[in-house]
């Protein structure tokens, strides 16, 4: 992950459960800027209750939560995740 992307992120959490979702916790003061980047770089499919933003980027699906969390689905490895985050937040 690049230093620019890392500047947006507080922590990355794996989850338990068969889905293997990955949750990226954004720094609180950077979450709005991060959302702007996502809106610019990815495709917004729909929005739920101003709380959830459903995005697609290439073959990837992810959700941004207004609380400053992004949940990525079906990411197999850390390298893919880092590359994806760089593409979305640069």
């Amino acid at each position: 992950m690049s230093a620019v992307s890392a500047d947006y992120i507080a922590r990355i959490e794996g989850t338990c459960g068969a889905e293997s979702d990955i949750i990226v916790v954004l720094k609180f003061d950077k979450k709005d800027q991060a959302l702007e980047k996502l809106l610019k770089n990815a495709t917004l499919k729909n929005q739920i209750a101003d709380m959830i933003y459903n995005f697609t980027y290439k073959e990837h699906v992810f959700r941004f939560y207004a609380s400053g969390r992004i949940i990525f689905k079906g990411i197999k490895d850390k390298q893919t995740l880092n590359k994806l985050i760089d593409s979305l937040l640069l």
């Binding site: 459960g17 979702d21 949750i23 939560y65 609380s67 969390r69 949940i71």
Partner: peptide
Amino acid sequence: FSSHDVALFCDSYGIAIRSGY
């Protein structure tokens, strides 16, 4: 929605629930 999605959604409203196994 995955259980984690539901937990994150509830968290946006300040409600803490667990998700996973």
